[in-house]
Design a protein around this nucleic acid. Structure first.
Length: 421
DNA sequence: TCTGGGGTCCTAGGACCC
DNA sequence: TCTGGGGTCCTAGGACCC
C-alpha cells in the first residue's frame, strides 16, 4: 500500500500557526510581488476566491470579508515542511518527498499493521506538534492514493481525514464518484478532450479501451489508466538532483533600460548558480529569456531567449553571470517595455565528474575557493551579504511584500514574542 | 496601477550515421 | 515509371505537476 500525505491549504495553515486568532478566518497567501492567491484557507475558498486569483481584482472582496492576505514566506513554509517530513519518517521508512506539502509513503512490509490507525496517529502527531492539519490517502497505487487523499480532504468528518481504498468494491465506488478533472495526470487539455466525449468520472475514464488511451495520450495515459485499475506502474522515486534550475521574476514596473536588465539578469544568474552549487552540479547551458507584459495587449509584445554553451561545465557565479549577460545582449531590443526575465541552467554534470576541455580555461576550478567562501558567508550571515558587483548594491529592487510574516522558526531575531502580562 | 515561480516527462520530426 | 533499411541523437514543443 502507498500513502499520500499532504498539508491542507498548506501555506495558509503555516501562517496560522503563529496567528491562532486567524483560525476559522479567511486567509490567503499571495505569490511574489503580492500578485496572485496561491493558497487559500477553506473560509477563503468559500468566499469564491479561486486559485491564482489576481489580488488587485479581489481587493474589495478581501476588505469586505476581512480576508487576511499574506506575502509568500517560503523560508517559513520550507522549514515547517521539513518538520512534517521528520515526523512522517518515524511512521514510514520509505518516503518520497513529492513537493513542499506532499509526501508518498511506501508501506510494503507493514502487513500486520492497521494502516488506517497508523496514519490517524501520524496525523494526530503532526497536528499536536505543528498545528498543521493534514489529509492522508491509502491505496495500492500512487494514483489511487491521490484519489483516496482527495476523498479524505473533501470529507474530513466522515473519514477523519484518513481514507483507505483497499478493495475493488471500494475503489469502484470511489472512481464512480471521482471527477474526471481531478485525476492526477488529467490537466485542462485532456479534461476538455474527454469531457467533450461525454466522460464525467474517473470510472468513465477507466472504462475506455487501453489502446484508445494510448492513441490519445501516449504512454503516460496508459500508466495512469492502469494505476487507476490497481495495476502498479510507479514505485517511490528517490530524490535525484535537479535537471534544470531557474530563477525568474516578474518586475513590479516595466523597463526598457538595458543596464537595469543586466543587473536583474546578473542577480538571477547568481541565485541560480547558488542553487547549482548546493546540489554539487555544474551546468553546460545558460539560458536567458526576457518578455514584455503579456496582459498589456495594447503595448508591443516581444519575447525571446538565448542559450550560451559553456566551454567547460561550471558552477561559478562569476562565469555564469558573465555568460548570462552575453546572452541578454543577444536578445535585447530597445523600445520594448520588459516585464519579466529569467536565467535557466541545464545540462548538468556532477561537479566531481566533469570532463574539461584541453584548451579552455576552467573557471569553475579557478573560482571554486571564492565561491566556497561566498556560499559559506551567505549561509551564515543571511543570503545576499556577499554578491557580485554587477548586482544591485543599493537594493533598488524590492519585491512588493506588504504583508510578509516573520521567519519565526529559522531566524532567532524574528522568533515569536510572547507578551509578559 | 495591479496578473507567480519552479519543475517533470514524453513525442515527433529532423539531421545524421552506415 | 521505378530510388532501401535500419539505426542514433538532438531539439522544440506539448502535456502535466505543485
Amino acid at each position: 500500500m502507498f500513502g499520500l500525505i499532504d498539508g491542507n491549504n498548506f501555506y495558509a495553515s503555516c501562517e496560522r500557526i503563529f496567528r491562532p486568532e486567524l483560525r476559522n478566518q479567511p486567509v490567503v497567501v499571495l505569490s511574489n510581488n503580492d500578485g496572485c492567491a496561491i493558497a487559500r484557507s477553506n473560509e477563503a475558498k468559500a468566499l469564491g476566491i479561486p486559485m491564482g486569483a489576481p489580488a488587485f481584482q479581489y481587493r474589495d472582496l478581501f476588505l469586505k470579508h476581512g480576508v487576511t492576505a499574506f506575502s509568500a514566506n517560503f523560508i517559513l513554509y520550507g522549514d515547517i515542511s521539513n518538520r512534517i517530513v521528520n515526523i512522517c519518517r518515524r511512521y514510514c521508512k520509505d518516503l518520497e518527498i513529492y513537493s513542499i506539502d506532499e509526501s508518498f509513503m511506501d508501506f510494503h512490509g507493514y502487513d500486520y499493521v492497521d494502516l488506517q490507525k497508523h496514519c490517524e496517529e501520524l496525523r494526530e502527531k503532526i497536528f499536536l506538534g505543528l498545528d498543521i492539519p493534514t489529509s492522508i490517502g491509502l491505496a495500492p497505487t500512487k494514483t489511487l492514493a491521490k484519489v483516496a487523499n482527495k476523498i479524505a480532504k473533501k470529507f474530513p468528518e466522515k473519514t477523519g481525514s484518513v481514507y483507505t481504498l483497499d478493495s475493488p468494491k471500494k475503489i469502484e465506488k470511489a472512481l464512480k464518484w471521482f471527477p474526471l478533472e481531478d485525476i492526477w495526470g488529467i490537466g485542462r487539455r485532456y479534461y476538455h478532450k474527454f469531457s467533450n466525449m461525454g466522460l464525467k468520472t474517473a470510472w468513465d475514464f477507466t472504462s475506455l479501451p487501453e489502446a484508445f488511451v494510448q492513441k490519445e495520450m501516449g504512454i503516460m495515459g496508459v500508466r495512469m489508466h492502469r494505476e487507476l485499475r490497481g495495476i502498479k506502474q510507479y514505485e517511490l522515486s528517490e530524490t535525484k538532483p535537479k535537471k534544470g534550475i531557474a530563477t525568474t521574476r516578474t518586475f513590479d514596473k516595466r523597463t526598457s533600460d538595458l543596464e537595469v536588465l543586466k543587473e536583474r539578469i546578473a542577480t538571477f544568474a547568481f541565485k541560480s548558480s547558488e542553487k547549482l552549487r548546493k546540489q554539487q552540479s555544474c551546468c553546460r547551458y545558460v539560458t536567458v529569456f526576457v518578455m514584455t507584459d503579456r496582459f498589456k495587449t495594447d503595448l508591443k509584445q516581444y519575447s525571446n531567449s538565448f542559450t550560451i554553451t559553456l566551454t567547460n561545465p561550471s558552477h561559478s557565479a562569476i562565469e555564469i553571470s558573465k555568460a548570462a549577460t552575453k546572452a541578454l545582449e543577444q536578445i535585447y531590443l530597445p523600445h520594448f517595455q520588459y516585464k519579466k526575465a529569467g536565467v535557466m541552467l541545464s545540462e548538468f554534470v556532477p561537479e566531481d565528474q566533469r570532463m574539461t576541455s584541453l584548451f579552455d580555461e576552467d573557471f569553475s576550478q579557478k573560482h571554486h575557493p571564492i565561491m566556497q567562501i561566498v556560499d559559506k558567508m551567505n549561509r551564515r550571515l543571511g543570503s545576499d551579504k556577499l554578491k557580485l558587483a554587477s548586482m544591485d548594491v543599493q537594493r533598488t529592487w524590492k519585491m512588493n511584500q506588504k504583508n510578509l510574516s516573520p521567519r519565526y522558526t529559522t531566524d532567532l531575531s524574528q522568533i515569536i514574542k510572547v507578551k509578559a502580562e
